[in-house]
Simulated scan of single mutants.
Amino acid sequence: MRVINLPFNFKVEQNMKKLLNYISVLGIALAFTACENDLEKVTYNVESTKAAVLATPATTSYVLESRYSENTAFTLEWTAPDFGYDAIVTTTIDFDLAGNDFANAIQLASVSTATSQEITIGTLNANILTLLRTYGIEEDFSARDFEIRLSSSISEAANPLLSNVLTLNITPYSADIQYPEVYAVGDYSGWGWDTAQSLFSFSEDAVNFEGIIDFGENKGKGFKLTGDTNWDNGNWGLDGSAAAPEAEAPSIQLINDGGSGNIACYSHRYYRFQFNNSTLLLTNNLSFDALFLVGSASGLTWDTSKPENEMQFDPERQRFYIDYTFAANDEIKFLTDNGTWFGGTSDGGLNTQDNIKIATAGSYRIYVNLNNSSNMTYELNDEDYGAE
């Protein structure tokens, strides 16, 4: 057997390494203990604290619209929370359906030193739709009560201070595709954008736009087109130096100018206009004064002789609707007062002259959307029958 004699200094080095390893392990253990102790120490005296106090907004009822998604829905303001000493505070804005004790609360925002926060319409709407899905509620876009509170915290180890609770009544909008749009602003909308209707770029090229406009009782009193809810991004109207357009002109060449004239040569109630914001050509694609439900069902005729069968127009969704009760195998179509027919297929398309057969007897709200000339649609909705 071969014996190897190790030098003395090698043994010392080995012993030192063992000692250093023991010290390292002990140091890590002490560090963890210190961290745990620090978390336990991050606390406050409840008697010396004050939770944030949310101020009630001037308005507590909101109807959200997709066209204003980047605008501010409301601004929350509050007094700063006080933990009794100079602490670093994180405050979250909790948002939930009313009556659920914030069980599935969503954080609208998180701030440190701020005592106010703007909430945009788009952010608010997206979070509402998330909450509805969380609670298994169908997105019917009706008004509901929601609650907001502030949760202020200095550490995960300490209970947060909770503010008072605000209740807001909010009507969301559909999260369907939001097409680029231009606005038809005119006498019918009081020359404002709140009630102005739109032409949409269904191809999403932001060049070609189309849609049904209901001028109501103010037909023929003038309108212009704008690219935004102001006059700074497209102000499209008539060229005053050119010949005035003929009545019911098939198309009009517009100009983009603050001094452009009002378009006042169209005297029907409903128009489907097409607009190209590159060539600035406005085209009158369809015009009429009323749309009727016609067919073989009891109470219907195949003409426009019954005023009670005239469809109403929803200016928010820009679509027609009427409530009606059918028997199985009844057949229907849609007919304008000036003789334009719209028939369809069983899948909801409205681009043929075929009669639409009612498969199941019942009471329905019938929706008709004529905005997109390449994809007109109808819908039979039994849940919306009789709705306000």
Rank of each mutant, 00 (worst) to 15 (best):
V63D: 05
S48A: 14
L64T: 01
P57S: 11
T91Y: 04
N71V: 09
V89D: 00
F83S: 11
T92Q: 09
Y85R: 13
A55L: 13
S69N: 08
Y68E: 08
E47T: 11
T92P: 00
A58S: 15
A55V: 00
A73N: 03
T92G: 11
T59F: 04
D94T: 02
G84F: 07
R67E: 05
N71R: 12
S69V: 08
T59N: 14
T59R: 05
D94L: 10
A51H: 01
A55G: 08
L76G: 06
T49A: 08
A80T: 14
W78L: 05
T79A: 14
L76M: 06
S61A: 15
L76W: 01
T56H: 04
A80Y: 14
T79C: 12
T75A: 07
L64Q: 02
S61V: 12
I88E: 15
G84M: 02
T90C: 04
V63I: 13
E77S: 15
N71Y: 09
W78E: 03
Y85N: 12
A58N: 14
T72M: 02
S66C: 05
K50E: 15
S66K: 13
T75E: 10
T72H: 08
S48N: 15
Y85G: 10
T60A: 07
E70W: 03
L64R: 02
S61T: 15
V89K: 01
V53D: 01
K50F: 02
G84S: 06
R67V: 12
Y68C: 10
Y62W: 06
N71F: 09
P81E: 11
R67W: 13
T92E: 07
